Amino acid sequence: MTRPVIGIFGGTFNPVHIGHLRAAIEVAEALSLAGVEFVPAARPPHKSGEPMLDFELRLLLCRLAVEAVDGFRVNAMEADRPGPSYTCDTLAELREARPGEEFCFILGMGDLLGLATWKRGLQLGRMASLAVHAREGLGLEVFTVFLKSNAAAMGAAPTDDPAVWELPEGRHITFVPVARLDVSASDIRERWRQKKRIDGLLSEAVLRELKQREDALEAAWAR
């Protein structure tokens, strides 16, 4: 019997916005995932200098963002982990705790291109399938060039479909084109600093919560 595949969508989510949600929905539909779990990073190693809302608030905002989406949930596993939040450690812990499930790590094209700088980044496909969405506007050609350059390190091999490459143990890395929404957390933070409206860039539930957390936003984002 085929085991269910759960999408793992990690990130700082500072704050979570409609671009995150839409990308996760489209990847889940394209790959027929059994569900998607948002996994906020408690201490992201690549963004240590970024002005950031505290973990508990980012966790709450993610829960508000996905609460009305069937099959979506938030996983708070990073809360108690000491040290930086490395994706390889997250996937290893998930595999150990839930041996009856398969996982598919969802990442943007920009993350894929920087994977060699991550801890065991080019080895992630040995722990989970990978789904790469083109939120940054980069397409299949960039995906293909990257995989050709890193095939040996990743254990990847092409298939008849240029958007799908084989990975070890029957897994795959798949390019998933998604609707391009030019929304970023950094742009939302900058708009907030300039006292511009951020309506429409976040779910209504997230926006309402942020409006009630002016002190937290001031402490984190005004720097």
Rank of each mutant, 00 (worst) to 15 (best):
A42K: 02
A163E: 11
W165S: 00
K195M: 08
V39F: 00
W221T: 07
M109E: 11
G108Q: 04
A68C: 11
A152L: 13
V183T: 09
D111F: 09
H133N: 05
A128G: 07
M52P: 00
D70Q: 14
W118D: 15
W192Y: 09
L107Y: 09
L91Q: 09
R43D: 06
G49I: 14
A24Y: 11
D70K: 14
E204P: 01
D80T: 11
G35W: 02
E218G: 00
P51T: 09
A151N: 02
A79Y: 02
W165D: 00
A152P: 02
T174I: 07
D182Y: 01
T174D: 06
A41K: 02
R81P: 03
W165T: 13
F143D: 07
G49H: 08
C88W: 13
V27A: 04
V16D: 00
I106L: 14
E102P: 00
R58Q: 10
G125P: 06
M52D: 01
L202C: 13
H17E: 04
I25A: 07
E218I: 05
M127Y: 07
R180Q: 10
A92D: 15
R191V: 08
W165E: 02
T2N: 11
A151Q: 13
A157V: 02
F72Q: 06
M154F: 10
A151W: 12
A76F: 06
G83H: 10
T90F: 04
R191F: 10
Y86T: 14
V178P: 01
L202Q: 04
V27F: 10
M52G: 00
K119A: 13
R120K: 14
A42E: 13
L64F: 08
D54Y: 15
F38T: 01
Y86V: 13
E190H: 09
D161V: 09
L61H: 10
L147W: 02
L91H: 12
M127K: 07
P82L: 13
D161E: 13
V164P: 02
V27P: 01
R191S: 03
D160P: 09
L130G: 00
P45N: 11
S203W: 06
G19R: 03
A128W: 03
L61D: 00
T159V: 06
F146S: 04
G83P: 00
R126E: 10
F72A: 04
G139P: 03
F175Y: 07
A23V: 10
R135D: 11
V16Q: 03
D70Y: 12
K211T: 01
S32P: 02
L53D: 01
Q194T: 00
R193C: 11
P45L: 05
E67R: 10
M1T: 11
